[in-house]
Amino acid sequence: MRGVSLRLRNVQLLEGLDFTVAPGEVLAILGPNGAGKSTLLRVLTGEWPATTGEVIFNARPIAQWKAEDRARSLAVLPQGTNLDFPFTVAEVVMLGRTPHRSGQVRDLAIVAEALAAVDASHLRERVYTQLSGGEKQRVQLARVLAQIWEDNGGQPRFLILDEPTASFDLAHQQLTLDLVRTLAGQGFGVVMVLHDLNMAARCATRMLLLSCGRAMEYGPPLQVLTPDNIRKVFGVAAVVQSNPLTGNPLVIT
């Protein structure tokens, strides 16, 4: 099995989590505030070592990867990035090419393609610090895409997104979800933290429902998004129906 498997036992934060993300899969991590979603992402990306258990990334424990090699097939979009220096948008996206040595010409082409993919080509020459919150987040998404834009010697590539759509308007939320599905179709493995259950239902192939650092439920959306689970984890009464447009589960509260 190639991909990520995590087994972790940490009394305080995360407990006994065990799952796999294969190339082509989209795993949505759901749960209330403080459930340990962001912590899980930190462990998953190797930033924090697991107390017990281990994270296997592309057949090797994640800590054994050289930072630069790992960065060529694993890109992470954090919730918010504070950048207070007046880079242009193109320069910010170019930072995604840091782990590569593909040359200026190729990198510029990738920057243009990544910006186009997030509908930000028109921002190219703008100064990053003067953008709106949503625009900044789109530029960061483009940077993360540029990081794993090209095939890396056949290694599966993974994208980890922490609430990628939080500051986006409706159109760009849709665009991001479509993008995630397209990428999964191309063989990327995607892990994303989302708060909107319906948005998660539209693009996830699997879901992990976290509560107090434990997995309440892990499986396909239909199995995870049940009124029972939603009541137990979020304390909210909900009705789950089939979305008339897509056939995915639709949570109505």
Binding site: T45, E47, A67, E68, L74, V76, P78, T81, T98, Q147
Partner: peptide, 9 residues
């Protein structure tokens, strides 16, 4: 940011 830089290798 520090963790962003780490993720960039």
């Amino acid at each position: 940011g520090e963790s962003e830089a780490r993720h960039l290798g």
